[in-house]
Amino acid sequence: MLVAVHTLVAGHRLFDVLDLIEDDPRVQIMFTVAPDAFNHPVHRHLSDLGALVLPWEQATKLTFDLVIAAAHGGLSELHGPILMMAHGAGRGKYSAEPERGGPVLARKTVYGLDSARLARDGRVLASKILLAHDAESDILLHQCPEAMGVAVVVGDPCYDRLVSSLPHRDRYRRGFGVTSGDRLILVSSTWGADGLFGNTVDLLPRLMEQLAGTHFRVGVVLHPAVWSAHGVRQVRAWLRDCTEAGLRLVDPTHDWRAAVIAADHVVGDHGSVTAYAAAIGRPVLSLAGVGVDRLRPGSAQSIVLRQADRLDLSGRIAEQFGVARPLDRDTVVQAITSRPGQAGTLIRRALYELLRLDEPGRHRGPAPVPDPPSTSTLVVVAS
């Protein structure tokens, strides 16, 4: 079995899936770093985890009983049945698709459910395409009808694992150095010019300045592509004043979900982390207009940004956190997954069907996410 890891983000999702099958002695799992602009931290991360990593050139010459991936680059070069899944909270973002050799189309397509990524030369690449929500089936029918025969709605393994981890919140908070009297503000930014980190450069300095000397603590989860695109040294330099003032940085190679569960409030944008935070009941604040036009109406990200309270950086920030309340959690969850609590069972079934192996026993259910590293009060970000 080959795991094609394009980015750290894709890797986080794939390791949730590997937990469903990795202990089966009939299955040998190998990894490869797949083509992607942001793949350069992946090899070191896989090596640190003790994974058996094949060079891409070698992986493209072998035939596997199963290939799994959470992104699309280079999959047409791999041999074997492919299981394809999303690496975020469903498929909630638009992308403008160019015609073959022509200009960008005016119409919007939903990223990851389109023929340009799912098919090559009229052939659907995947043997199974995992969907989180029934609504994605409707989109797939419109954008890539030839893939309907291999699509299966399985729910969202990331959401299910967040839920299984909620009872461990106090332990995660201790791991981040948050005491019983503290309130943890977590800032989440996706990558790109319309993410919070790229769009609102004064957000973190203002939070640290206004909340200094209070019972509020501030942490930040930056999309791994932020680190990859700018370089670890540069991101550290940009945030040096904030980290010296006590800002907690979450290492992009570590599981961000512990920070979301530990948080009391989340300041977020149109990224998946913000949607997941709202889905587990964390009050979410956003900055007006950031990223909304990129979102599919009805997606969890769209619902969260349209319903979240707006953070006014010119006002009294501590008071705004004091009155912020959670969104309608059920509404957000229903937009993220059509099979809450079932993703592990359904994905495991799909894996064994493609491997043509009998599914052993009963899966133990999603494990809680790992505790933060002991250095999380001042996290060292891996290069």
Rank of each mutant, 00 (worst) to 15 (best):
V3L: 09
A10C: 14
R13K: 15
L14K: 02
V17R: 03
L20Q: 06
D24R: 00
V33I: 01
V42D: 06
H43I: 04
R44E: 14
S47D: 15
G50D: 03
L54Q: 00
L54A: 01
L54V: 00
E57L: 09
Q58Y: 05
A59L: 01
D65P: 05
A69M: 06
A70T: 02
H72F: 15
E77V: 02
L83K: 01
M84Y: 15
A86L: 14
G90C: 07
P98S: 05
Y111H: 12
S115C: 15
R123C: 07
L125W: 00
A126V: 02
K128H: 15
K128E: 13
L131V: 06
D138I: 12
L140Y: 04
Q143Y: 08
A147S: 09
V150T: 08
A151V: 07
V152E: 13
V153T: 09
Y159Q: 09
L162A: 08
T179L: 13
G181E: 09
L184S: 02
I185M: 07
L186Y: 02
S188D: 10
T190V: 10
F197G: 03
T200K: 14
M208C: 01
L211V: 13
L211T: 12
G231Q: 07
V232W: 10
R236T: 11
W238S: 09
C242P: 10
T253Y: 11
W256T: 08
V260N: 08
S286Q: 13
R294H: 11
R296H: 07
G298E: 06
S299R: 12
S302H: 14
L305W: 04
R306L: 10
R306S: 07
A308P: 03
L311T: 05
S314F: 13
G315H: 06
E319R: 12
G322T: 14
G322W: 12
V323T: 15
L327W: 05
Q342L: 14
Q342M: 11
R349E: 13
L351P: 05
L351N: 02
Y352I: 04
R364V: 09
P373A: 05
S374L: 15
